[in-house]
Nucleic acid binder design. Structure first.
Length: 424
RNA sequence: GGACGGAUGGCUGAGUCUGGUUUAAGGCACCGGUUUUGAAAACCGGCGUAGGGGUAACUCUACCGGGGGUUCGAAUCCCUCUCUGUCCGCCA
C-alpha cells in the first residue's frame, strides 16, 4: 500500500501510474476523503484535550455539587468526541479500502504497456534451445510413459489438477530442492521451512485477497487460516510488526514450502500437465533491505535465478515485466522464461521464475520498519522476493530439454552428485 | 485436553488488591556535559513510537500483549482473544 501523504501530494503521478498498470481507482475521491479525515481527526483531538482536562479536575473538586457539574460537562464532551471519532473511523475505513486498490509505483525503466505482450526481453541464458533429431515429447507424455507422473490418481484421491510424483522424478525433485538450498546458503540466505498455512491478515498484508469471489487462495473453513500460495506470505508475515536495526539489513531468507493455488478459470493446452497445478513445492528467496539497497538486491536475485537455470543447463530468457502485467505490490518484476520444447507446436517459452522488488509497499501494510542507530524515528524496509525453483515447472524444463529418443532423461551435471545417477 | 500464574519503555522492574498530582517510580544500558594528562568513578542533563499543529522554540493526541466494555476518568475493574510459565494428563 502507498503512503496516504504521498498519494495526496503526488496524486497526478499516482493516477498516471494506475492508468499505466490498468487499474482503475478514484484517486481524487481518496484525496478529498483524506483531507476531510484530517480535519475531523483534529477536532477529535481537541475534544479529547478538553475532556481530559475536565476529568483531571474532578479529582480535586471541592464539593460534590461541583463534582457532579463537572461530571456532566465531561460526559457531554466525551459524547461529542465519540461522535467525531465515529465519523473519523468511517472515513478512515473508506480511504483504506481505496488505498488497498492502488498499486505500487512502477520503476521508471519499466516498459509501459497493457499486458504481457509489452514485456521486454533483456537477456538470455548460457544455453540455447537444443536441436532435436527426434520429436521431443512434452513432459506429461514422457512422465506418464515412464510412470513418474500420475494425474489420474491425483484426480481420484484429491481432485482435478492434483498429481502424484513417483520414482526417479521424486529423486530429481528432491535433488533440485537440495541443490537450490545449498547454493542459496552459500550466498548468505538463511534456509527456512515455513508453515504452509497463514492467517488471512498476513495474506492481505502481502497483497493477496483471500476469500473474495476471485480469490486464488484456498481457505480453511471455521478459521481465519488459508493455505499459502507462496512462502513469500509466511516469510513476510514472520517479521510483521517488527522494527529491525538498520545494521541487521539486508536479511536474506530462503523459504521452503508447499504452495497452493485454486487457479480458478485457468485451463487449456498451455497449462497442461505440471505447468499449472493446485499444489507444488517452491524454494523461494525473500529479502528485507534498506531502501537504498533494494535495486541492487533485485539485480542479485535476478542473477541468482539466472545462475541456477544455467546450472541445470536450461535455455531461458529474462523479461522486464510491463506495467500492465505487474502485480499490485511490485515496483519492478523480472521473469525467467525457460524453453520448453514440448510446449505448443515445436516449443515455447514458459515462465519459471519471477522476482519482484516491492519497495515499501508490503512493509507499510505489514508494519515492518527499521531504525538507524542514534537517529530518531523509523522507516519502512523494502521487501523483495524471487523464485529459486518452483518444482513442477523446473521439472518440466528438465524433462523436456534433457530427454533422449528412448524416453530416458539426462540428469544435469550439478544434480548428479546429489541424485547419485547420470540418467533416469 | 485440565488447573493456576504471568505479559508494563532498549533491558530490568515498581505501580494493579483500594481507578484520579503518575507528565508510568527506581535501576541498568545508551547519548551529551562538568571534572580528569587519559580513563574510571562521581555529579548534572538527556534518553520511546506513531500521528496532528507550528518557520521555530514548542505543543496536542494515542499507545502499559491484541480487541471490546464499565466510568467524567482505566496500566489498575469486567469480558474476550493471543502468547507465555509451572504442574497434571495424553502422545510420535
Amino acid at each position: 500500500m502507498l503512503d496516504r501523504k504521498f498519494i495526496v501530494e503526488n496524486s497526478d503521478a499516482v493516477k498516471q501510474n494506475c492508468y499505466n498498470r490498468n487499474v482503475s481507482v478514484d484517486v481524487d475521491l481518496l484525496v478529498e476523503l483524506e483531507t476531510t479525515r484530517k480535519a475531523v481527526a483534529q477536532s477529535v483531538q481537541e475534544l479529547n484535550t478538553a475532556a481530559n482536562a475536565i476529568s483531571k479536575s474532578i479529582g480535586s473538586a471541592k464539593d460534590s455539587d461541583e463534582r457532579e457539574r463537572l461530571k456532566e460537562e465531561g460526559r457531554l464532551l466525551r459524547e461529542q468526541k465519540d461522535a467525531a471519532q465515529h465519523h473519523h473511523d468511517a472515513l478512515d475505513a473508506e480511504i483504506h479500502a481505496l488505498q488497498l486498490h492502488i498499486p505500487n509505483m512502477a520503476h521508471p525503466d519499466c516498459p509501459v504497456g497493457e499486458d504481457d505482450k509489452a514485456n521486454l526481453e533483456i537477456s538470455t541464458g548460457k544455453h540455447s534451445p537444443r536441436k532435436f533429431d527426434f520429436k521431443p515429447l512434452d513432459h506429461l507424455d514422457l512422465g506418464e510413459k515412464r510412470g513418474w507422473i500420475d494425474f489420474e490418481a491425483g484426480a481420484a484421491t484429491t481432485g482435478n489438477g492434483f498429481y502424484f510424483l513417483k520414482g526417479d522424478l521424486v529423486l530429481l525433485d528432491l535433488a533440485v530442492q537440495q541443490f537450490a538450498v545449498r547454493e542459496l546458503v552459500k550466498r548468505g540466505f538463511t534456509p527456512t521451512i515455513t508453515p504452509d498455512l497463514a492467517r488471512d491478515s498476513v495474506l492481505e498484508g502481502i497483497g493477496f485477497m483471500p476469500r473474495g469471489p476471485e480469490t486464488q487462495i484456498y481457505s480453511i473453513q471455521d478459521s481465519d487460516l488459508s493455505l499459502i500460495g507462496t512462502a513469500e506470505i509466511t516469510l513476510g508475515g514472520m517479521y510483521s510488526g517488527k522494527t529491525l536495526a538498520s545494521d541487521e539489513l539486508p536479511i536474506k531468507m530462503c523459504g521452503i514450502s508447499h504452495c497452493y493455488r485454486t487457479e480458478a478459470g485457468a485451463a487449456g493446452r498451455a497449462s497442461r500437465g505440471l505447468y499449472r497445478v493446485h499444489q507444488f513445492t517452491k524454494i523461494e528467496m525473500f529479502a528485507f533491505t534498506l531502501p537504498e539497497q533494494s535495486d541492487a538486491m533485485h539485480d542479485e536475485l535476478r542473477q541468482i535465478e539466472c545462475d541456477l537455470f544455467d546450472a541445470i543447463e536450461i535455455p531461458y530468457r529474462v523479461v522486464d515485466t510491463a506495467t500492465g502485467d505487474l502485480g499490485g505490490p511490485a515496483y519492478r518484476k523480472f521473469d525467467l522464461e525457460a524453453w520448453m520444447p514440448g510446449r505448443g507446436e515445436g516449443g515455447e517459452w514458459g515462465e519459471v521464475t519471477s522476482t519482484s522488488n516491492c519497495t515499501d509497499y508490503q512493509a507499510r501494510r505489514l508494519n515492518i520498519r527499521y531504525k538507524e542507530k542514534d537517529k530518531k524515528g523509523t522507516q519502512f524496509v523494502h521487501t523483495l522476493n524471487g523464485t529459486a525453483f518452483a518444482l513442477s515447472r523446473a521439472l518440466i524444463a528438465i524433462l523436456e530439454n534433457h530427454q533422449n529418443a528412448d524416453g530416458t532423461v539426462n540428469i544435469p551435471a550439478c544434480l548428479r552428485p546429489i541424485m547419485g545417477q547420470e540418467k533416469m
